[in-house]
Computed example of a mutant assay.
Amino acid sequence: MSTLALKGTYWVTVRQYRRTLWLAAAAVAVSLAVIGGLRIWDAQTPDRYYEDGQRYAADDNRGYEALRLALEYGGMWLLLLPLLVGAFVAGPLVAREFESGTYKLSLAQSVSPTDWLRAKLLTATVIALLVTLALTGVFRIGWSRVSGSYNLDWSDRGPYEATGTVIFAYVLAAIAVGALVGQLIRRTLVAMAATGLVMGVVLLILGAFRWSFLTVKTVTGPAGPTLWAPENALMTDAGLLTTSGVRFDQSICWDEVNRTPGLDGMNDGGMKIFERCLAQHDVTSQYVDYHPQSHFWPTQLIESGILLALAALAAFAAFRVLRARHP
């Protein structure tokens, strides 16, 4: 067992932040108790069945609604995990050591600056990934029941991150960015805020552009009846097409309706003007752009790759800064 025990800087790091570890363990335990309890409550009310044999939660199943709400908020809270991890690494783990000068004690114990930082980051990485794995596991316990419901589709913010690999890549990127920012700023609170800001921007940017990584699929049909994307697909755009296949901007016809004097809504002749405008521009069909559910894992892997590249660059820069200041 002695070979499995933590030694040196690893042991010091765990001992130094044992309260944080206990808080993380408590968060996992509470999450498991809440989701497990809601699953039990949900199971007390039998499901109802459609004529084709598909089942759905009964209208009076309050346990299901509570579970769905808990997963909806739980997924959004998981998005904050990389920010919390990055802020902790940047602040208490790195910047505070430089701010207080306690890092000198470690370096005086025949530990090189590189070994000192490596031990801290490896310890933080293992613990952060284990906590992330536990929390995503708890999320999946509830997800298996409520997936596909309102705000809990595979492409929604929260469930998308919590059910794939990307949340782990965000955590790794946060650790590396935190290590770099902590060394550059060396002020605990400022480093924590800066790291949270950086990771928040990364979350927003990748969240905004992730559905541009892969080419969308398109389905077309005659103009008139509503055209739907395939089941479980993420619709990204919809509109009208001319006979030549060119996408038509409907605002042209809406503007013509709005410019017509004496109209009081679409039911007062506005619809006829709108349809006449469409006919004048040879609009005969419509389209829907969408991402099928099969795009989930390719998008996850592309986004994870971007984050791992960011993590590698930030970690490389962090060790370069350390060697430059403490050769």
Rank of each mutant, 00 (worst) to 15 (best):
G200N: 02
G86H: 04
T123D: 07
V198N: 03
M199C: 05
L203T: 06
T114R: 15
D153H: 08
A95M: 10
Q183K: 01
G182D: 06
A162M: 11
L184H: 03
V171N: 05
G164Y: 02
W116P: 00
I127T: 10
T136I: 11
R186M: 12
G196W: 10
A128G: 10
S147A: 15
V85D: 09
T165L: 15
Y170I: 02
M199I: 15
F98K: 04
V126F: 10
W143D: 09
L197W: 08
G158M: 13
G178H: 05
P113C: 07
L84E: 03
W154N: 08
G196Y: 00
T132S: 13
V94G: 01
A108E: 07
R186C: 12
G142F: 04
G101H: 10
G158R: 12
V198K: 07
L189G: 13
L107A: 06
A119N: 04
Y150L: 15
S147D: 15
E97T: 01
Y170T: 02
G86N: 06
G86Q: 04
A134P: 03
A169F: 03
Y160S: 01
L105W: 14
V181R: 05
W154K: 07
E99G: 11
E97A: 09
F98L: 14
T165E: 11
L189P: 00
A119M: 08
A179Q: 02
T125W: 09
R145A: 15
A87P: 00
R186I: 05
V181C: 05
R118K: 15
G164T: 10
A87M: 15
V190W: 09
S110H: 11
A95D: 06
G137H: 13
S147W: 10
G91R: 02
S147K: 13
E161C: 06
G142E: 05
E97C: 01
K120C: 09
A95V: 02
Y170S: 00
R140K: 12
G137K: 13
L122G: 00
L189W: 14
V177N: 00
A108G: 13
A90Y: 03
L93C: 03
T125E: 11
G137P: 09
V94L: 11
D153Y: 07
